[in-house]
Write a protein that binds this DNA or RNA. Sequence first.
DNA 1: GTGATGACGATAT
DNA 2: TATATCGCCATCA
Length: 135
Amino acid sequence: MTSPTDLQDPYERIYQVCEQVPAGQVATYGDIATIVGGACDARTVGHAMAALGSRAATVPWQRIINRTGGISTSGYRQRELLEAEGVAFDDKGHARMDQHHWKGPSEAWARAHGFQVLPPRDAPAPAPEAQLKLF
DNA sequence: GTGATGACGATAT
DNA sequence: TATATCGCCATCA
């Protein structure tokens, strides 16, 4: 297992997880780092996003935001792209994490690719009316 | 090899 | 809730 050929580039794994984020949902850098596991940190994910390069066309980098739900980028129209996907923002420029927070990939997919799943979370605040409004 | 920087997170106030 | 401080890791000069 010490062979680098067995493990893909650390960034490649991050991109792969980012591709699992469906449209209309957002994930935090910490979530991606938790799913990738290993020496992957929230900051490492941020560096990976900055090193996207040509992969920016296939990786939904715009769905990756910081833990506060704010957009750290400036000039990339990240918020505009998210709004186009149906992600709601408040007047403070923070995404509605309670509505669009990605719950993580399927356990089967994560296990099949050697990834991890996000820790279980208690129901934050179910809004029946809000769900009905979606789509 | 060392120091500085960064698309961050968590905790404390 | 917002701000301030510290910590962790990878990349670049």
